[in-house]
Every structure is written in C-alpha cells, then in structure tokens.
Design a protein around this nucleic acid. Structure first.
Length: 561
RNA sequence: UGGGGCGUCGACAAGUGGUAAGUCACCAGCCUUUGGAGCUGGCAUUCCCAGGUUCGAAUCCUGGCGCCCCAGCCA
C-alpha cells in the first residue's frame, strides 16, 4: 500500500512528522498505534484513525501496532476484540506480530504505581466516589485536598499492596496521583490511577482486583511500546499535561501526543454508546446491519476497503470540529464500484411486456458487455424471448415533459436487444392497475441500433420472463432524517422510518445464478448492489449499496415544484 | 481571565508575509445503447469582526465575537 507521499495532501500531522524525521528525532523512527477499547464494534470514525495511523507509519517506513486498551473488564468482551481485528484486516492493514493488549502491561503498570508512591507522588485515598467529586471542586472553583493526601510512603505502600491482595471492598479505596487540587485543568486534581474492581477480565481472568485507569495506562503503554507519535482525538488535549506528568515523573520514554478532530458524518451517529443502543433495542438487526456506520455494517452494505481508504484520505486531518457530507463517502464508493462492478440487469418492480410479433417459442442469446469501464471484464450472453419484464416506472400512460421512456405509441430501446414500440395497455378491470403491455419489436434493430440510423431517446433494462431468477432486494436510505441526529434531545426521534424497504418479487437475469455473498454488481440504471449472506440456493438476496446518480429524478422533482 | 482548543466557498480542506490549491455538492453545456460513466466551463476581489505593523497580511500584533471539550473509581 504505497500511497505516494507526493500525491497525498498536506496536513498538520504529516508536517510535524516530516519535521521530526528531518530533525532525526527518535533517530528518524516513526512508530504509531491504533488503540481501541474492545467495548463495541468499529465504525467509520475509527476507520479514519486506522487509516491515519497505519497510513502514516507506512508512508514514513515505520510501524503501527494494534493495541487493545482493555482496562475496564466490565465493558469489554472477546467478541469485540475479534470483530476489531477482522475489521482492521479487512480495511487492508497489517499489524504484523505487534498485536498488544494494555492488560499485557498490568504487572509493569503496577510497578510504575509503586514507584510513584515511593516518590511521594501517589497516595491511597479512602474518600467515597461522591466525596471525591465534592473535593474536586468545579470548573471555576479549585478543589480541596483529600484528608488522606499526606499519608506516609510506608502506609501508602502497605495499603496499595493490600488493595491488590483483595483486602478491601470494591470502590472503598483508590490510588491517586498527588498533583494539584487547585489546577485549572481538572485532570490534574489528583486523578484516580487505580481502582478496586472485582470483575473477570477477558484476558487476565481473576488475577487482578485492582485495575489501572485509562489515563495512567494509555500514556505508559505507548511509552512501553516506544510509540513516537501518539495520535488521538481532540478531547484528550486536556489530558496531555497529565500524561506528560506521569512520563516525566517516571522518567520513561516520552511519546509525542498529537490531537486531531474526530470524524462526524452527516445523517449518522458515531457514538458507540448510541450505536449499542440501536442494536440492543432492536432498531437495527445487529452491529452489521447495512444501515449502520460500523465497518461491519458498511462491509455488508457493499462498501469496499478501497473506497473507505480513499474517503479517509480525502477528508483530510485537522483540528477543526467538522461535519463531513455523506455525499463524499458515497462519491468515493461509486467511483470505486464504477470501475469494478459487473453490469447486470435486474427488474425491481416488474411489469410484464408481451412482444406480439416475436415468435412464440423462440429464445435468442444476446451479447452483453460486462463493464464498459473495463474492457477486460468481457461479455456474457443473455436470453431474450417474447415475454419480458421491464421496470414499472419506465412506462407512463401519460408521460410528462422530458420523460423519454416508454409510453403508448412510443419507441424505446431494450438494452443489448431491440427497439420496441408500445401498442396496447392492458389494465385490471376493477383496480385500473396496468397489468401488462403489448408491444412490437423491429427485427432490424438487433443488439440495439437501427440500420437506418433511426434514433430513440430511451434505453430500458429488462429480463426475459421465462429465464429470469427471483430475488429479494433490500433498499436502504439514511438511518436518520436529520443532518445531525446528536442535536436532537433524543437521537432516536429522528430515526428514518423508511430506512429499509424490502422488495420480495424482483427478477434478475440468469447469469446471477450462483452469485456469492459479498460480490458487487451494478444493476443497470439502478445502482450498485451486493449479495447478502442471507441468500439461499433458491432465493438471492441483494443489498443496495448505493444508487446511481439519478438525473431524471432530479428533473421530475423540479417539475413537481 | 477556571483550563484547553478551534474559526479560509453550502460541506471538507491546502496555504506558515508576495497577492486564495484541490475535492464533494450545486449550476450550465458536450457526449452517451445505463437520464450511469466521461468531458468542458461556472462557482471566496476575499480568509469570524475591528484596529494596527508592512511596499505588501488569510498568514505578524492588539482587542473583540462565535463555536467545541473538561467536574467517571468510563475510554
């Protein structure tokens, strides 16, 4: 994956690294890491971070670790670590033999804590959680010292050891860093660094009943791994002074932290907590529901790793809070799929068409190109016969201006086949619904062009009734109706009730028989679709990944105004 | 003056004292056996505002204004 440095847009992190390398800082070494907590599935926001960290390392000939920040056993599960590994791999990145867990460092971390105690820089505090909060003060008023702040080193060492040995109850005591209760930065007001928690950890089991807090763990884990550039999101800017304090007091390798703005995407939410809520309360079918912004959801929806990586590159990296238009993500997707997706014909809302002058029992095999964007994709044969299905919306009994599809008396082209002309409309006597069309074809227009140069405005896709395959098609719209669902008091209030439409009686061309889950196609004139794992032998199921740009829909919308 | 950040087109985003890149979106046209794709053109006399320094300021200085983050024994 050699994204050439020259073509990559400049950003402030690249500039910093560039200078560090030039100045031979860390001997010119670049080592990053992607540090997720295994408490949920990864989403597109994480993808930005993954691409950044792995991308930067690759670009400067460095390394990138995958490390799980697993310091809270009450929220973490192996299911999540497995999904995270799968997602990072799927995105196209390789952590080599550098798969780490903060829990691997628990012994070392414990020793670091002991060192702080010995330096008189940490103490065991018996205040209750409520009391700690009270003593912390407020944003504008300083806090006050804990009555336990001046315990002797000896007593602290003894108490901390007994905390670890399980002598005290959960939450009864904590180990705190002794810094400054009057600091304007709340993170510096004697933060908790160890708490007592009797919970089985997914990796260390019941070995520990004290667990280090994130702030203490994270910076020291980066230090232990020799991370040169600790890239994280903006909200940790306030924590940097604390990290600096730990690192300096302990006199260990000091990574450089750089903060950037997390990704916000229009019409979607990125909060793991809220995503979990959608899953648990059944608003979606799971973490990999194709409407979810999770990596697994995007994958099932039909997104490609290439499109996500390209997107990550194009949104840039900065410190400004921003909201990226989801149209950009969709653009990257279409751009990728346009080049690689095989074109096939599928009719989503079938309308029967009988070609009266076409021989009753004849079938022709017509040549169809697989992808006009890719000559190597070759071509295939598709069957044509007297009865076909076309898209219901491709016929209008009373066509509006600029509608150049089929209508009574009109002639259009059937893609790869013949020109047909509409002769008769058959309706249901009771409902008035159009049930079928009778047309005639011009045998001299085979493969779609007239010998006499006659032009036709519209080209329709179709399938042969006798040969087509049944299929289910799932159409997705954005999950939320508001550009920024987080602005709502209850983000679920703007959930889009029409985010999923399931079409059960679709017809697709026979070449799709045996299509495997995950494969991408362009349904001509509709959009890009992929085969869903729910497909069975008798019933193919397709997800609409993204629609094609629809100029007609835009025109018609304008006409109705 | 609690602390920390951030303000460049509708949305992203380069630019780091030499006279506003690029992308998405949008608009117009060309082309087309996908109303797809592609191609061409348009789209910030101005960079949150006001002063100042300078031959020259988005970039430097001063003062405002606006937005985001922080009071978990979560990460």
């Amino acid at each position: 994956m050699s994204t050439s440095t020259s073509s990559s847009p400049s950003n402030f992190i690249r500039n910093i690294i560039e200078e560090d390398v030039k100045a031979k800082k860390n001997n010119g070494r670049v080592h990053t890491r992607f540090p997720p907590e295994p408490n949920g599935y990864l989403h597109i926001g994480h993808a930005k971070s993954i691409c950044l960290n792995f991308g930067l390392a690759a670009e400067y000939g460095g390394l990138c670790n995958l490390r799980f920040d697993d310091t809270n056993p009450t929220k973490e599960e192996v299911e999540y670590v497995e999904s995270i590994k799968e997602d990072v791999r799927w995105l196209g990145f390789d952590w080599g033999d550098r798969l780490y867990y903060a829990s691997d460092y628990f012994d070392q971390l414990y020793q670091y804590a002991v060192q702080l105690i010995k330096k008189g820089k940490a103490y065991v505090c018996d205040l209750s959680p409520d009391e700690i909060r009270e003593y912390r003060g407020t944003l504008k008023e300083p806090g006050k010292n804990s009555p336990y702040r001046d315990r002797s080193v000896k007593e602290n060492l003894d108490l901390f050891e007994r905390m670890r040995a399980g002598e005290f109850g959960d939450g009864s005591r904590v180990l705190r860093a002794k810094i400054d209760m009057a600091s304007g930065n709340l993170n510096m007001r004697d933060p908790v660094i160890y708490r007592i928690l009797r919970a089985t950890h997914h990796r260390t089991g019941d070995k520990w009943c004290v667990y280090p807090m994130y702030d203490f763990t994270h910076c020291l884990s980066d230090s232990i791994e020799g991370i040169t550039h600790s890239i994280c999101t903006l909200e940790f800017e306030d924590h940097r002074p604390l990290y600096d304090w730990f690192l300096d007091e302990l006199k260990v390798f000091h990574p450089q932290q750089i903060e950037f703005a997390r990704l916000n995407l229009s019409y979607t939410i990125m909060s793991k907590r809220k995503l979990l809520q959608l899953v648990e309360e059944g608003y979606v079918s799971g973490w990999d529901d194709p409407r979810m912004p999770t990596i697994s959801g995007l994958r099932r929806r039909g997104y490609t790793p290439e499109s996500i990586r390209n997107f990550s590159e194009r949104i840039g990296v900065a410190k400004k809070d921003s909201m990226v238009d989801i149209a950009l993500l969709e653009h990257c997707l279409r751009q990728d799929l346009n080049k690689r997706a095989l074109r096939v014909m599928a009719v989503l809302h079938p309308l029967r068409v009988i070609i009266d002058n076409y021989p009753e029992n004849q079938t022709e095999e017509l040549e169809a190109i697989n992808n006009p964007e890719d000559p190597d994709a070759g071509s295939r044969k598709i069957p044509f016969s007297r009865t076909i299905y076309i898209e219901r919306e491709d016929f209008r009994e009373d066509p509006p201006k600029k509608f150049f599809r089929l209508a009574p008396g009109r002639e259009v082209r059937l893609k790869h086949a013949y020109f047909i002309q509409c002769e008769q409309v058959i309706k249901d006597d009771k409902t008035g619904e159009i049930v079928e069309l009778h047309c005639t074809y011009d045998p001299k227009t085979k493969s779609g062009s007239a010998q006499n140069g006659r032009k036709v405005k519209g080209t329709l896709h179709w399938v042969s009734a006798k040969h087509c395959l049944p299929a289910e098609v799932r159409l997705y719209e954005r999950l939320f109706t508001r550009e920024n669902p987080d602005e709502d008091k209850d983000f679920k209030a703007c959930l889009n009730p029409n985010s999923l439409e399931t079409l059960k009686s679709c017809r697709v061309e026979p070449s799709l028989a045996g299509a495997t889950p995950g494969s991408h196609y362009q349904f001509l004139r509709h959009g890009y679709f992929c085969v869903d794992p729910d497909s069975t032998k008798g019933q193919l199921v397709f997800n609409r990944t993204v629609s094609l740009r629809d100029t007609w829909a835009k025109i018609e919308k304008g006409q109705n105004k």
